[in-house]
Computed example of a mutant assay.
Amino acid sequence: MTTAEEYVDFAERQARGSSPAYERLAREVAGDDELLALLDRVPPPKRQPNLLFGVVRLLDGPVGDYKAFRTFVIDRWAAVEPELRRRATQTNEIGRSALLLPVLAALPQPLALLEVGASAGLNLYPDRYSYDYNGTRVGTSGPVLPCSLRGRTPPAALPEVVWRAGIDLNPLDITDPDDRAWLEALIWPEHDDRRERLRAAAEIAAADPPHLVRGDLVEELPALAASAPPGATLVVFHTSVLYQVPPDVRAAFVALVGSLPGHWLAAEGPEIVGLDEHPADGLHKNVLCLDGKPLAWTHAHGRSAHFF
């Protein structure tokens, strides 16, 4: 896929109906030869729309008007390019906890949670948030995460989590102002509800910081998984992570995680999990899988989970 095609795909399948500002920007970038030439100077993973738009927002650039956005990127390319190269789309969207909760609550309790691609580890606290599934409330504290749930009854109670840890190439410290600013910059401009939830989740994590290990997901996983407490059900999970992992490393991870005790819970794009189909509405959706078995179509930010 060319850079232009990637931006068209983002506009059509991800931003459409969710972020008018990003949809407009992505369509304009796709037809802008000068901007595309600049983007093609950086490695392919660093050209993605979410990353570019997040970097511009981090640098206090405009995203509401394309002319102003274009001028900012070109004039400030000396600042934009190094940020693209050093940053990654570490969107720590806690709304995804609403997708995982029905499965987590149904597993043998208590749980030991190990998140791969953990960012700042905010999805390691599913037991500290509240949920609204079609008007049914689960939980009584923390930010409320709304989710349209089909094909599955909302869980009767929150899971019991006795251990939580994560792995990331560049784990973020939720108490660090720069890391916190990057997480906020990754939230799409119209999504004030997500921004408020991030801030509430940040307070929870700052009061009880997760154990985050810096390193490669394949190299670090065995030792960290082995440190989970005996008697707890180990759940290795990740959401919208593997698309950023090279295919050979991804294959090694899948083989490794399948050999571990406990369960493997993932929400990734259908092409990542080997599902040769897409939702009927044409929008981008992830597939929620347990131990490699597809369970549901899920919204990337956690707004819906439609079980098969």
Rank of each mutant, 00 (worst) to 15 (best):
Y133P: 06
D176K: 01
E220F: 01
P189M: 09
V161I: 15
A181V: 02
R164C: 13
L111S: 03
L145Y: 01
R194M: 03
D208V: 13
G215T: 08
P143N: 12
V116W: 07
W182A: 07
D216A: 02
R150Y: 00
V138F: 01
W188F: 07
G121C: 13
P143I: 12
S141V: 10
V213S: 05
V103C: 05
V138D: 01
N123T: 14
I167W: 08
L101P: 00
T175G: 13
P210A: 15
W188R: 08
P210W: 14
E196V: 14
I204N: 10
A207F: 13
L172T: 01
V218M: 02
L122T: 04
L107Y: 05
R152D: 00
L217F: 05
A206L: 15
G117Q: 06
L113D: 04
L212R: 04
R150A: 11
I167Y: 08
R199V: 10
R194C: 02
L172V: 03
P189E: 10
Q109K: 09
L172A: 14
Y129M: 11
D216E: 04
A112S: 15
L186C: 02
V161H: 13
L186P: 00
A118H: 05
L172N: 03
H191S: 01
A223I: 02
S141C: 03
H191T: 00
R195T: 10
V103R: 04
P171K: 10
T175R: 15
R164S: 12
P159A: 12
R195G: 09
Y125C: 11
E160C: 05
L172R: 15
A157G: 05
V138H: 02
R199C: 03
E160D: 09
R150L: 09
L158M: 07
P189F: 05
W188D: 11
A200K: 15
H211Y: 15
L104N: 06
L221D: 12
G135C: 02
G166D: 00
V161L: 14
D173F: 05
P210R: 14
P146M: 12
A206E: 11
L107W: 06
R194L: 12
I174T: 09
E190G: 08
A106T: 08
L111R: 04
A157T: 13
V213N: 04
A156I: 09
A157N: 03
L169M: 08
P222K: 09
I167R: 04
V103K: 08
R137F: 10
G215C: 07
I174H: 13
P222E: 10
D173K: 07
G121P: 11
I174G: 02
S119K: 06
L124Q: 04
A112H: 06
P210N: 14
L145E: 03
I167L: 14
G135P: 00
P110V: 11
E196H: 10
Y131T: 09
G135S: 01
R128C: 00
A118D: 08
P159G: 08
R197H: 07
A157Q: 11
R137A: 15
P171A: 12
P222I: 06
Y133M: 12
E196P: 01
A105G: 05
V138W: 01
D208T: 14
V116T: 12
D168I: 07
T136N: 00
